[in-house]
C-alpha cells in the first residue's frame, strides 16, 4: 500500500506538469463559467426551467472536467506509457502493472476533484452558486459518472495500438461528448435533433444525473441514468481489463 502511495505521489507531480490537462481541467471550465455567467447572470430564467444559468451549468461543467481527465489525460498517459515501454520496464520490477494503472486512475480523479473545487469556489464567490440537492447523493452520482467515463478511457487507452490511434479515438469520443451532451452548452437550448444525438452519448446521462441531484432531485429519480452509466462501467471496464495491451 505504501508502494502504491509513493507511485501515486510521483505521478501526481507529473500530471501537474501537463499543461493541457491543467488547462482543461482547472482553467477552461472556470472560463466557461465566467463567460456564460457574465452573459446570462445567475437569476432564475424561464429557459432554464426556473433556475439560474450558473446553477444549471455547473453540474454540466463538472462532467466536462470528468471528460478531460477520464477520456483524454487517463487514456493518453496509458498509451504513452505503453508506447514508450515504460509499462514494460515496470513489469520487471516487483510492482504489479495494475498498480501503475491504479495510480494513474487516482491522480486523474484527484485532478477532477481539484477542478471541481476550483469551479465551485469561483461559482460561489462570483455568481452566488446554489446547490439544492443532498451532498451525499451528489457524491454518489459523481462516483457513478467517474466509473462510467473512466471505464471508457481505460478501454481507449488499453486497447489502442499506439499513441496516435489513442489520441484520434480520444478526440472522436471527447468532443461530441463535450459539446453535444449538455456538458458545455445546456441541453435545454439545443434543437431536438441534437437532443436525439445526445441520447447515444454516455456523458449526457452523467449530465442529466448530476444536474438532477444538483437541482434537488434524488438518486431514486435517476435510476435509468445510474443503470446506464454502471452498465457502461461494467462492460467497457470488463473488456478493457480482459484485452488490455501491456505492450
Amino acid at each position: 500500500m505504501n508502494r502504491l502511495w509513493k507511485i501515486t505521489a510521483v505521478e501526481w507531480k507529473l500530471i501537474n506538469r501537463e499543461f493541457i490537462t491543467l488547462f482543461f481541467a482547472l482553467i477552461f471550465p472556470v472560463l466557461m463559467l465566467l463567460l456564460f455567467g457574465t452573459i446570462y447572470g445567475n437569476r432564475p430564467s424561464e429557459i432554464m426551467g426556473g433556475y439560474g444559468t450558473v446553477d444549471v451549468s455547473t453540474p454540466g461543467y463538472t462532467n466536462m472536467i470528468i471528460a478531460v481527465t477520464g477520456l483524454m489525460s487517463f487514456p493518453l498517459t496509458l498509451a504513452q506509457y505503453r508506447e514508450k515501454k515504460i509499462l514494460r520496464r515496470f513489469m520487471v520490477t516487483p510492482v504489479k502493472p495494475v498498480e501503475i494503472l491504479l495510480s494513474q486512475f487516482f491522480v486523474n480523479i484527484l485532478m477532477t476533484v481539484l477542478g471541481l473545487v476550483v469551479l465551485i469556489a469561483l461559482g460561489k464567490v462570483v455568481f452566488d452558486l446554489h446547490f439544492y440537492g443532498n451532498v451525499l447523493e451528489a457524491i454518489v452520482a459523481f462516483i457513478v459518472i467517474l466509473l462510467g467515463i473512466f471505464s471508457i478511457g481505460l478501454f481507449i487507452g488499453g486497447l489502442s495500438k499506439n499513441m496516435k490511434m489513442c489520441t484520434t479515438i480520444a478526440y472522436i469520443v471527447y468532443f461530441p461528448m463535450l459539446f453535444l451532451s449538455g456538458a458545455t452548452i445546456p441541453i435545454e437550448i439545443m434543437p431536438q435533433s441534437i437532443i436525439n444525438i445526445s441520447k447515444v452519448l454516455p456523458m449526457s446521462y452523467g449530465v442529466s444525473l448530476l444536474k438532477g441531484i444538483w437541482l434537488g432531485g434524488h438518486l431514486s429519480d435517476h435510476v435509468k441514468e445510474i443503470v446506464i452509466l454502471l452498465s457502461i462501467a461494467v462492460v467497457s471496464g470488463g473488456f478493457a481489463v480482459k484485452f488490455f495491451k501491456w505492450e
Partner: peptide, 14 residues
C-alpha cells in the same frame, strides 16, 4: 535482479 531494457524511455517531464 536488476534490468536495463533496450529502448526504454521515461515519463515526460520526470
Amino acid at each position: 535482479i536488476g534490468v536495463q531494457l533496450q529502448e526504454t524511455a521515461y515519463q515526460d517531464r520526470i
